[in-house]
Simulated assay, not measured.
Amino acid sequence: MAAVPVREGKVNFEAPNGGKEGSTWYKVHGSLEDSPSPALVALHGGPGAGHEYLSPLANLYGKYGVPVVFYDQVGCGRSTHYREKMGDESFWTFDLFIQELDNLIDHLKLREKGFFILGQSWGGMLGAVYATRHPKGLKKLIIASSPASVPLYVVGNDQLRSELPQDIREALEGPDHDSPEYEKASAFFYKQHVCRLDPRPEDVQTAFKNLEEDSTAYITMQGPSELVIVGSLKNWEGWKIAHDINVDTLVLNGRYDEMTDVCVEPWFKAIPRVKWVTFENSSHMAHWEQPERFLQVCGGFLSG
């Protein structure tokens, strides 16, 4: 069997009001030129989690012939960092990341053949907003474990917290987010609702390391943790513009996902051409927790 072609590169990206030269790092798994299939561009979560934890998507090339483009969004990984922009909500915007995405797509010349988008968590929010703008070449969209409403995400998380053991719940509801008790309680919640594998795969651990190494975008847009949403996204209601998505869309979440049905269902109600699949044995990382089923669902949708 021939080796799968993999190439890495960087493309210059001048972030609006970034104040310095910047670049986006990317990796292409598979041949963009030789494959009859459009490429899938993978939008990672966080913001700031980096591309590594989405690595199982690379198997779409071997099984379905879909090349996969991974990249680190600015502010994390091997792309340009902007730690000096901590708290700058005018810098960390959807428009910033959409301009970066468009710049990468144009650099790789994906528009003529067309391309797919898969966004996971924050990446799905980004992908959905991108799709409402009807970018040239977009063929299909996958929104994986992403909230259609951040306020409803909070409602769902409140329900998940209410079901936790009392000591865990009390620690999470306490005011000290830096205490050992809070960290222990957060780890318990993450084990239940973010990644249920023990130990966590190395690539998933890398996502957390990326966020520790540079939390600028995450803190500005999300907040100090998955459970405390005080950043610029706190009132975001993506479902209100989702009727403008005009491509076939697949919405995914896990039965134990921190993205509960209550915050995912509005995608299903608002997007005109949509299918919704829930993975019964997964939380937030179905691509790791049920990898074969995940590839089957996504590959079937993209190649159908």
Rank of each mutant, 00 (worst) to 15 (best):
G22V: 15
P38F: 11
D72E: 08
G87T: 06
K27V: 07
R200P: 02
V11T: 06
V247A: 12
M1P: 12
S37Y: 12
K109T: 15
L138G: 11
Q73N: 09
P47H: 02
E8S: 11
G299K: 15
E183P: 13
R200N: 05
W92S: 12
S145E: 13
F115T: 03
Q290M: 08
L126S: 14
W288D: 00
F294T: 14
L60W: 00
S215N: 10
P36D: 06
H29T: 06
D34E: 08
V41R: 11
V277F: 10
G48A: 07
P147E: 05
T278L: 08
V150D: 01
G19R: 09
K10P: 14
R111N: 04
S149T: 12
H177G: 05
I229G: 00
W122V: 03
S90L: 10
V277Y: 13
G238I: 08
S55V: 09
Q205W: 03
K240R: 14
G22R: 14
A286L: 06
A171G: 02
R200K: 15
F301R: 10
A39T: 06
E237K: 10
C76E: 00
P291W: 09
V11I: 10
T216N: 07
A42K: 11
L164I: 02
R161W: 15
D95M: 01
G114L: 11
